[in-house]
Design a protein around this nucleic acid. Structure first.
Lengths: 115, 115
DNA sequence: TTGCCATGCCTATAACTTCAAGGTATATGC
DNA sequence: GCATATACCTTGAAGTTATAGGCATGGCAA
């Protein structure tokens, strides 16, 4: 079961984090990669190959808005969460809570867990 | 993003639950499918097509032991967690904690999260 | 008897996501 | 000139879940 790709418990997490971070302030791709790493205390690290496809997909769905900005001769594309994006974030957090709560119940030894 | 396969936040969860449940008492595949559903309060449901491959893989790795038993004319294969299985369960729970803690930190608005 | 459903095992295909590695380009430091 | 950091992007591989089915037995009802 040694996963190299799709590691344990990571499905959907990058998208959740991106949406959450972009709800606070606008950021560009390269910045997000590092923000995810620092904000999680090095616990979670994702590559650019993970972030960029998510940004493009979310923007195509109208969950993100982007604007180009030249900084020090380099081109940056800043993304921020739209209303639809925040709505989607809420749905993702609800789902995240649902799963984590369920797992916690079982892990804590839910004796009969019937009634 | 409407996922039909590999839904949000489910990667690795079925394996964790199977290992956890089989650490308490031996169960057979069909029983596990229902046990996961009831023990999570209907929050998590997995089909047989998810459980059986996991059982076979874990057994092949020595994480599970099995014994055949005939009950009411039907053949059942009971699985239980071995020492290696419990060790793997421990590793999975540690990883689970690591990810969920990290996500919780970001979601709760991680101030600047620099130092 | 016949038919249907629940039990109980199993497999194959499709779909989705993450990961690693590479490609392009500019600014800076040696 | 050359290497590194920034900054964007794409491609291919790997792994997991979901859906749908196949096979077989027992119990129940018509």
């Amino acid at each position: 079961m040694a996963r190299k790709t799709n590691p344990e418990f990571m499905t959907g997490v990058p998208e959740l984090l991106v949406l959450r971070l972009l709800s606070d302030r606008e950021m560009y791709g390269y910045e997000l990669v590092q923000a995810i790493e620092t904000s999680t205390g090095e616990a979670i690290k994702v590559g650019e190959g993970v972030v960029y496809p998510i940004l493009h997909a979310l923007e195509a769905q109208g969950c993100l808005a982007s604007r180009r900005k030249a900084v020090e001769g380099r081109m940056r594309i800043y993304y921020s969460a739209t209303a639809a994006g925040k709505k989607r974030l809420g749905a993702l957090m609800t789902e995240w809570q649902r799963i984590t709560d369920a797992v916690a119940t079982v892990v804590r030894g839910s004796k009969h867990a019937k009634a």
